[in-house]
Amino acid sequence: MQELLNIFVKSIFIDNMVFAYFLGMCSYIAVSKTVKTSVGLGLAVIFVLGITVPIGYLMNEFLLKPGALVWLDSEFIDVDLSFLSFIMFIAVIASMVQLVEMIVEKFSPALYASLGIFLPLIAVNCAILGGSLFMQEREYQSLAQATSFALGSGLGWFLAIVGIAAIREKIKYSNVPGPLKGIGITFIITGLMGIAFMSFLGIKL
């Protein structure tokens, strides 16, 4: 249990998707003009990460890892399909996003109305594929660990985009030098926020 909490907190603050790995920067810059839309996108990212990473974990465990096909027959011990992982993960993500969109539209029109336009965008958000790839690279031991990593990174991304959106709403009233207006100052503020987040380095639970 403590291990799970550790992974969760670590992936929110220390290994933050935006500040430590720059994942999902494109939508982070493009959609952070107002707090309201960024909350919507942030929630959608948590949601999709929370679904795709556990599925990716199961696929990695039972299909892709070297020797993962042993559960079918012991003669598959030498089969290594890990070179297929990119195409498998992106296929899972694209189809899950489609599926999630249809389910949400059917059962919760209110949520669909607030997330609607962002869901299709998420298929090409690097944070989602990055979640699956980091999960594979860091070799989490159980499904629960992979899930807590996914939810933690989603929450970290959510915090980052809501934070920058709030700052951008306020900075509109400041006298920024002309050429820096818009994305220039956003980059620099994100860098400063990243430095602030680095103060969490070395926290051990």
Binding site: Y21, P179, I185, L192, G194
Partner: peptide, 27 residues
């Protein structure tokens, strides 16, 4: 070497490029 400096460096490159090409300035 730390990650945040990459962002700040990009911000500065954007700043330089837009000061030289004022037509790129939006907002």
């Amino acid at each position: 070497i730390l990650p945040p400096m990459a962002l700040i460096a990009t911000g500065i490159i954007i700043w330089v490029q837009r000061s030289r090409n004022p037509e790129l300035i939006k907002d």
